[in-house]
Amino acid sequence: MAPNQLPAVLFAALAVILALAAPLRAGDPDMLQDFCVADYKSLKGPLRLNGFPCKKPENVTANDFFSNVLAAPGNTNNPVGSAVTAANVEKLPGLNTLGMSMSRVDYAPWGVNPPHTHPRATEIIFMLEGSLDVGFVTTAGKLFSHTVCKGELFVFPRGLLHFQRNNGGAPAVAISAFNSQLPGMQPIAMALFGASPQVPTDVLGRALQIDGGLVEAIKSKFPTKY
């Protein structure tokens, strides 16, 4: 090999190594101890790095690893006809640094879990009751959709826009699992029309190819959260 070819080969090898290493950073960081039960009381201010401070081990009890938050159905009496009940690190302190969480989603007949993303996690759903029409959209704009029935699974890749719809006249229930202790959820409609400060009307009008009056009418249905 010619001497002047060596830097190019080393650069190519480094690029391959970095490409292979990138997927290893896709989930929450690995912990370096048996557990780190979230100590909500010692958290001062909103700033934290991938988790809550740890409780002192002598103050940890079995209750820190237990929750019945998913036992009761959510209230689906709302405009979309669904309710998400999260079991993440904010509800179950023993999840802190473990890189996983769950949710229960209840659906009224024909109810919808509107298009949304989970920026920090991949999601897998398991149907407990009923059946759903589900789908996600790739960054290339392709829709992958399927009907998921009782006892079946479906996976939504991390960060991609997805939705679920109860396709029957009876209630449905699904359990979701995530590879993050706090996956986050960003409903698309709320992000566009309920942000505070508001996304400019002319920006939304041009993006959605609709007039400003219609944008304002839609915004009125999404009161700001903050």
Rank of each mutant, 00 (worst) to 15 (best):
A86S: 15
A38F: 05
L43H: 07
V60T: 06
G51H: 02
P79L: 03
G81T: 08
N68M: 08
F35K: 04
A72P: 04
K44E: 14
R48V: 02
P73V: 02
L32K: 07
L47E: 13
G27K: 08
L43W: 05
G74R: 07
M102N: 10
L49V: 12
N59W: 05
G74C: 05
G74Q: 02
K44Y: 15
K91S: 13
N88F: 13
T61N: 05
R25S: 15
G81R: 05
G51K: 01
S42F: 06
P73W: 03
D106N: 11
Y40N: 00
M100T: 14
S67L: 06
N50L: 07
G111A: 08
N88E: 14
D30L: 09
N59R: 04
G27R: 11
P57H: 09
K44H: 11
T61Q: 02
A83Y: 01
V84P: 04
A108L: 08
T85R: 02
A26D: 15
S82H: 13
G27H: 14
K91A: 15
D28E: 14
S101L: 08
D106W: 07
A108M: 00
A87R: 05
V89P: 10
V105I: 13
G74A: 03
V37L: 00
N96S: 02
G74V: 04
L92Y: 10
G99F: 13
L98A: 08
N96K: 03
S103R: 08
M100A: 06
N68H: 13
